[in-house]
Amino acid sequence: MPFKSVPVRFSLLFFLLLFWGGVVSRSAVASVPVPDTAAVAPLQLRYPDPQKLQELRESKDFQYGQDIRPDMSFWERFWRKIGDYLSQMLSGTSYDGFWKYVLYAIAIGTTVFVILKLLQVDFVGLFSRKSAAAAITYETYRENIHEIDFDALLAEAEAQGDYRRAIRLQYLRTLKLLTDQGLIDWKPGKTNRSYVSELKSSPLLRPFERVTQLFEYVWYGGSSLDEQTFETVRQSFREFHQSFAKTA
């Protein structure tokens, strides 16, 4: 019966290997050379350098029994003092002193604010780096059309032969008239075409379109203007004003 003979075979193989392994190991052990005790160097005891040891003993980094504060810079000492002062003030039983200092702080802050405001200092710039880049002057174009004395300035520009400026003033006056009548909503960021589209249902659309284009050719296009051309352009503005008078 083969299934019974299998364990017997394994047992025989196991003992055979065990016996053979023991023989091999014994022969291997027997072949290892015995060390010569006389050739081994004697043990040497080494000690740390006493000077170095003393240095380490005295170093404050290794004084575990003492609480030594780390070295602080000037600013760290300054802010620590402020912190100690505030915590002392706030942890006190009475807040009378605290409120007194708060009032002092508000008074000083208000004074500084008023002074800076009078000097027209950019406040945002004090606290932000970005604001420095934002300091752009817009004064060049910052004109309120409601505060311009058009008649005087127009007379001056024409007398000086500065026809481009005269056309500009004519156009600004046109915008003022339309704004005053509530026909357009004046905003500095709006373009001329925005105003044209606001007049879409008005009879003033065509005359306004024409003066707008004239203004743009002269003011943005750098068209040269002699007295005769200026007169032609001025005539267009007159026609607009006539149409405006009829509408009003």
Binding site: Y141, R168, L172, P188
Partner: peptide, 9 residues
Amino acid sequence: IIQKTEVPR
């Protein structure tokens, strides 16, 4: 930004 920037006239 465009609304805020004054158109040169």
